[in-house]
Each structure stands twice: as structure tokens, then as C-alpha cells.
Amino acid sequence: MSERTSFVDKESSLALHGFAIALFLFVVVRGSVLSFLLPPFEGWDEYQHLATAEYVYLNNKFPSIEAMVPKPMWDYLRSTGHPDESAKQLPELGVRNYRGEVWNQAMSAWVLPSEIETKDLKAQRLYQAQQGPLYYYLLAYLKRGLSPIAYQPWADTARFVNVALYGLSLVMWVYILTLTSNRRRYSTNNIRMSMVLAALCPLAIYNAARVGNDVLAIFFASSAILLYYLLLRAIIDSKSEIQWKIIGGSC
């Protein structure tokens, strides 16, 4: 059996835990600053994720893909600018982009709100309803401590929770790599460098600093992998011939 990193050594263990804590704090601070700087709805499909959770919050059930963005959100969506792709999805709601323009579907062009007449307001379908429901139920539960119309604080809180979950996911990967690495092939410094690079990746932290279900999936997957290796390590360390054979090993 290859020599593996041990958590028994007190000095190594303290260094490992210290690095994990520092990594987590770095990700949380960096992600929180980014989420604060990002305008509302700047993240991919943010308004859709919020609207799907709002539907769950209002109706206590998960929407079908034919359901529409809930009407109580309309004023909030109209009150602030959107990235172009988001505003293009909601022209019949009179949603503006960051430049204050509205998408005119007939002209396929951006125009000033005064140049277009919005008669019957109509919103977009909840296409994020094709996703699994867990994230949206959790997001709806998160809103229960806020005012029903406190959409921006709700979105900011959801962004922060995602950042924290991403930080915890990276921490778990510190331990996963430590558990599975061979000292002679993959040193502690290499593990730390890999995780620092992951924490510095602009696309990854941008994805974490938005309202979306990706980070929750990463968190659960990381948790499952860590638990698997901890269980595997416990079985190996138990030196039980029967348990070792169950996982396909040989004594």
C-alpha cells in the first residue's frame, strides 16, 4: 500500500487546518467583494433563479416550465437595469438594460422607453424550472426571514451563501487531495498551490458570486467524495480482512 499523508502528526495537522481556514476566508472575502460589485442580475440567469424560488415561496410548490415569472416580482425587475441578454428576455415587461434602453422585438434594436409603448405587461416563462427543485426550496426558505418585497437583500444573501458554500467546497478538496495523495508524487505544496489557483480562478469565483444552483451541486458532490474517502480510509485503517475484500482489495 502506498504511503499516504497522515492526519496524526500534530504539526502537519495544524498546518493543514490553518491553510484550509485561510483558504476559506480568502474565498469568502474575495467572493463577497465581487458579489457586492456585481450589478443586480449580472450573473447568468439570476433573475430566473430568483423568480423560480419566488414561485416556490408564493405557492409552496415547484413550478412547471410553463409557469411565468411571478407578478409580485415585476416591479422589482422593472426598477433596475439588466444585462442585455436578460433585458432581451423581458421586453414585454418593459425591462431596461444598464443603458436605460428597452429591447424592441419588432425592430430588433434597443430603443428608449419613450419610443416604445408597453400595453399589456407580460413576463417570461420560468425556464429554470427544468432544474432540480432542492436549490429553489432552500432559496425560498431563505426569504422567510425577510420582507416579501425585499428582493435585493434576498439576492445579496443568496450570493453570500453561494460564496460560502464554494469556499467550503474548496476546503473539502484540500482534505480530499491530502487523503488521496502520495507524498513522493504530490507534495503538500502542490496541493496548496492547486487550491490557491482554484480560489484565484476568475470564472469560478464569478460563478460562485451569483444566484444560481451550480455551487450547491459542487458542494454536495465535494461532500460525497470526501465522505467516500473518509469511509475508505477508515476501512483500510481498520485492517479488517473482510471489509478490505468488500471494496475489492487484497490482503
Score class of each variant (00 low, 15 high):
Val171Arg: 01
Val33Trp: 11
Tyr47Thr: 00
Ser194Thr: 12
Pro39Val: 14
Ala22Asn: 09
Gly132Cys: 13
Ile205Ser: 02
Lys119Gln: 09
Leu126Ile: 05
Gly212Asn: 14
Val69Glu: 00
Ile149Gln: 14
Leu90Met: 06
Ile21Lys: 14
Ser64Val: 07
Asp120Lys: 15
Gly212Cys: 13
Leu112Arg: 15
Trp244Asp: 09
Asp9Ser: 12
Val211His: 00
Pro202Tyr: 01
Leu23Val: 02
Ala204Leu: 07
Gly31Pro: 02
Glu92His: 12
Ser32Asp: 04
Leu227Trp: 11
Tyr127Lys: 08
Val163Ala: 03
Asn97Ile: 07
Arg99Lys: 11
Leu121Trp: 12
Ala140Gly: 04
Ser35Glu: 09
Phe7His: 07
Glu85Arg: 08
Glu241Asn: 08
Leu232Val: 14
Pro40Lys: 07
Gly248Pro: 03
Gln48Ser: 06
Arg210Ile: 12
Ala158Asp: 00
Leu37Ile: 12
Met107Leu: 12
Gly132Arg: 13
Gly31Ala: 05
Pro63Asn: 08
Val211Met: 05
Leu112Pro: 06
Leu134Ile: 09
Phe26Pro: 04
Trp103Ala: 02
Tyr228Ala: 10
Trp110Pro: 04
Ser169Thr: 05
Ile191Lys: 02
Val95Leu: 06
Asn59Thr: 07
Val28Arg: 02
Leu203Arg: 15
Ser187Lys: 10
Glu92Ile: 06
Arg144Cys: 08
Ser187Gly: 13
Asp75Trp: 10
Gly94Ile: 06
Pro83Met: 08
Leu203Cys: 11
Phe24Asn: 13
Val171Gln: 02
Ser32Cys: 05
Lys10Cys: 13
Asn190Ala: 13
Leu170Ser: 00
Leu231Thr: 14
Pro39Phe: 09
Ser223Lys: 07
Gly94Phe: 04
His17Arg: 12
Gln128Ser: 07
Phe160Pro: 03
Cys251Leu: 15
Ser108Met: 13
Ile149Leu: 15
Leu134Met: 11
Arg233Ile: 14
Ile191His: 04
Gly81Cys: 05
Ser223Phe: 09
Val29Trp: 11
Phe220Pro: 06
Leu50Glu: 04
Ala199Met: 07
Thr188Phe: 15
Gly248Phe: 01
Phe24Pro: 11
Val69Cys: 03
Leu139Phe: 00
Ala123Trp: 01
Ser86Tyr: 00
Arg30Met: 10
Ser250Asn: 15
Tyr175Ile: 04
Arg192Pro: 09
Leu170Met: 01
Ala67Asn: 03
Leu126Gly: 01
Ile236Phe: 12
Phe19Trp: 04
Leu139Trp: 00
Asp84Phe: 10
Asn59Cys: 07
Leu179Asn: 15
Trp154Pro: 00
Leu14Val: 09
Leu142Trp: 03
Gly132Pro: 15
Lys143Met: 01
Asp45Gln: 01
Leu177Lys: 09
Ile225Phe: 09
Leu121Asn: 10
Trp74Gln: 07
Arg192Cys: 13
Thr188Ala: 15
Ala198His: 08
Met172Ala: 05
Ala199Arg: 02
Pro83Tyr: 06
Val69Ser: 00
Phe62Asn: 00
Ala224Arg: 02
Phe41Thr: 01
Pro202Val: 03
Lys10Gln: 15
Tyr228Met: 11
Glu66Trp: 15
Gly248Leu: 00
Ser187Val: 12
Met1Lys: 10
Leu139Lys: 01
Thr5Gln: 12
